[in-house]
């Protein structure tokens, strides 16, 4: 496989060469780097793991090549809407200041809202799951208000809150908080009563039962809630940025579209995809650390 890849790979840059120098050189450099890695892989164990990625890299190269061909080379797709890849690279290079600013604005908004929502949701979930009294009062509210999409609050939030930033934080926290609350609650409520019996006969206090029995036992559920919350928060983030906040990738997306700058739009989309998938990966890592005890119990 490695040999086949090395044979095919260098073909592509030649293909691109005549069109945009910079892009082609970058592609060529990448191809050469991967080819070198492929050769090295025969000898060094460290590169062996990269082997798994080769079919994907190959497919990616084919896709880029096809994209290049149908846009820049043959012009099969209408131009302002479907720019060639080098146009996107150009945007990233020329407009990086605004894009980086956008990433930071989005990340700040998302992080604040998500952390607030997750924390509040977690605490509420534990409280509902643990205390009958809290459950009595919070549960109906949750039932009634929870299923409402957070975006439905948008018009209200934007005039109730002093700034669009705080309104967006509220919305993101709301979108995150609901699934986290419900799943934490169901996790805590579903803890086997035998676990409590054991701890009680060993002299556990209420505090110990909550912190050391209920919460760890509920953690797998909590993580499902955290994942769902993260997904929801992305959606709300983009909507909030498109409609109210004057910064961030969502706003950039809207702005670019307004100027018919489609290359900028694709660049922002691409960056957003990286941001979101990066955060999901981060959450997966956290789960793997905290719930490593589940290995062997469930399909990992």
């Amino acid at each position: 496989m490695v040999a086949a890849l090395t044979a095919f790979w260098p073909d592509k840059p030649e293909n691109d060469w005549t069109y945009t120098g910079g892009f082609a050189i970058a592609c060529g450099a990448l191809a050469v780097a991967i080819a070198v890695a492929a050769f090295a892989g025969v000898r060094f164990a460290a590169f062996q793991r990269l082997k798994r990625l080769f079919p994907w890299l190959f497919a990616l190269a084919l896709f880029l090549a096809a994209w290049e061909v149908v846009t820049a080379k043959l012009g099969l797709l209408p131009l302002p809407f479907f720019p060639p890849p080098q146009a996107i690279v150009e945007v990233v290079i020329d407009d990086w200041g605004r894009l980086v600013e956008g990433i930071f604005a989005s990340a700040r908004l998302l992080a604040t809202g998500y952390l607030i929502g997750a924390t509040v949701g977690f605490v509420t979930g534990v409280a509902i799951g643990w205390s009958r009294l809290v459950g009595y009062w919070i549960h109906p509210i949750l039932r009634f208000v929870g299923p409402l999409p957070a975006t439905a609050w948008l018009p209200l939030a934007f005039f109730v809150f002093p700034s669009s930033f705080s309104a967006s934080i509220f919305l993101i926290a709301l979108a995150t908080g609901f699934p986290v609350t419900v799943l934490t609650w169901s996790g805590v409520a579903g803890v086997k009563s035998a676990y409590y019996d054991i701890a009680r006969t060993l002299g556990a206090t209420q505090r110990f039962l909550v912190l050391k029995v209920a919460i760890p036992a509920a953690m797998p559920h909590v993580f499902v809630g955290l994942f769902m919350g993260l997904g929801n928060s992305f959606a709300v983030l983009v909507v909030a940025e498109m409609l109210g906040v004057k910064a961030g990738l969502g706003w950039y997306l809207q702005w670019a579209q307004g100027w018919a700058a489609y290359a900028n739009m694709y660049a922002a989309l691409l960056l957003m995809a990286f941001l979101c998938s990066g955060l999901i990966t981060l959450l997966f890592r956290l789960r793997d650390r905290l719930l490593s005890w589940q290995k062997g119990l469930v399909r990992w």
């Binding site: 035998a194 060993l202 760890p216």
Partner: peptide, 17 residues
């Protein structure tokens, strides 16, 4: 319950985590 009286149940109920 008091820790001077400890129960061993039919099911070991160890905490999986």
């Amino acid at each position: 319950p008091d820790p001077s009286r400890v129960v061993v149940f039919q099911d070991p109920t160890l905490y999986p985590w």
